[in-house]
Design a protein around this nucleic acid. Structure first.
Length: 312
DNA sequence: GCCCAGGGTTATA
DNA sequence: TATAACCATGGG
């Protein structure tokens, strides 16, 4: 059974503005930290002393939050700083909802762990409690997908950092600078040269500006996509967008729109992970991968995410 | 210097 | 519908 977000059961503690979320089991904080720590070049959150710090844009205001868990039963969310005049219940709810989506607390992992597939068995045992960490913001998810097309992950992180630190929003706190992803408005106002200057290819610059413009013109939104009903329709909508192919569409379905069956089949990371866990000499063919994935039906996104952890 | 990287579009058959 | 060529850039 899924665990829908329910603001009425949220428990806030004063005066430190801390929220305790009883997380659905199984949940493992450590494997999630492991995923979030995979790049030392990440710019959109920081892991420090086993707490995750993240800057959230909420309307015109910013909230810096710290998340941690000591027992894998309760997730603590502390509002470190809020730029607005008062922490209304609406703001608190937005923050709680973001964390809920970010950690994919809606999903019940039990059926996934019950899948009888030899490959899944390996990775679910190795990363028990890992949840498919999301990218709740659609523009960020699509941008990160586009940035990651056909380049190695290290360079992708570098490009993202340049984009964020040039056009994003920041907050100084406790001697640290925290960054939030640029808004579509900011990116839509750029020229392709603004991005090629940061070593984006001409294509990536064009795609990013295109997506930003669709969003600022109201022709593309997370709410609008989710309202189309089924995931197949959402995928078709995404595929109509220039620069969004099958891999990126499924990446966005997986990390943002939360289709557990989204499957970025062309993902090189997935290919290399399968090569590794199966002890192959070469990367498996697409036909082989389709065959292997027959045992993952309904959970392809989670299978892919867990397999990524084998390599990085 | 070479192959590779969390692909997509366009041209061609 | 299916396959090939081209794209452009840094990492290792």
């Amino acid at each position: 059974m899924p665990n829908p977000f329910n603001p009425s059961v949220l428990k806030w503690h004063e005066p430190t503005s801390t929220l305790s979320i009883a997380v659905p089991q199984p949940f493992g904080y450590e494997p999630n930290i492991g995923y979030l720590s995979r790049s030392t070049n990440e710019c959109l959150f920081a892991v420090d002393n086993s707490s995750i710090y993240k800057l959230l844009p909420l309307g015109d205001n910013l909230a810096l939050i710290a998340v941690n868990s000591e027992d894998d039963l309760v997730l603590h969310v502390r509002i470190v700083h809020y730029s607005g005049t008062s922490l209304t219940s609406e703001v608190r709810e937005d923050i709680a909802r973001y964390v809920w989506e970010w950690f994919d607390l809606e999903t019940d992992l039990a059926p996934f762990y019950a899948m009888e597939d030899p490959i899944l068995r390996q990775v679910t045992e190795a990363f028990r409690g890992l949840r498919l960490m999301g990218i709740p913001d659609l523009f960020e998810a699509m941008s990160w997908g586009i940035i990651g097309q056909q380049i190695n992950l290290a360079f992708a992180y570098t490009l993202k950092r340049r984009l964020v630190e040039t056009f994003g929003t920041s907050l100084e706190w406790g001697g640290q600078t925290y960054w939030a992803f640029p808004t579509p408005e900011r990116i839509a106002a750029l020229t392709p040269e603004d991005l090629t200057l940061l070593q984006f290819t001409g294509k990536k610059a064009e795609y990013l500006l295109g997506v930003a413009k669709l969003m600022t013109q109201g022709e593309l939104s997370k709410k609008g996509l989710l309202a189309t009903g089924d995931f197949a329709a959402m995928e078709q909508e995404l595929l109509r967008i220039r620069g969004i192919g099958p891999w990126t569409a499924n990446y966005v379905l997986m990390r943002c729109l939360r289709n557990p069956a989204a499957f970025p089949l062309a993902d090189v990371g997935l290919h290399n992970a399968l090569k590794h866990v199966l002890g192959l000499d070469a990367k498996p063919s697409l036909a082989q991968i389709r065959q292997l994935a027959e045992g993952w039906q309904g959970w392809e996104a989670y299978a892919t995410f867990y397999l990524w952890r084998v390599l990085y």
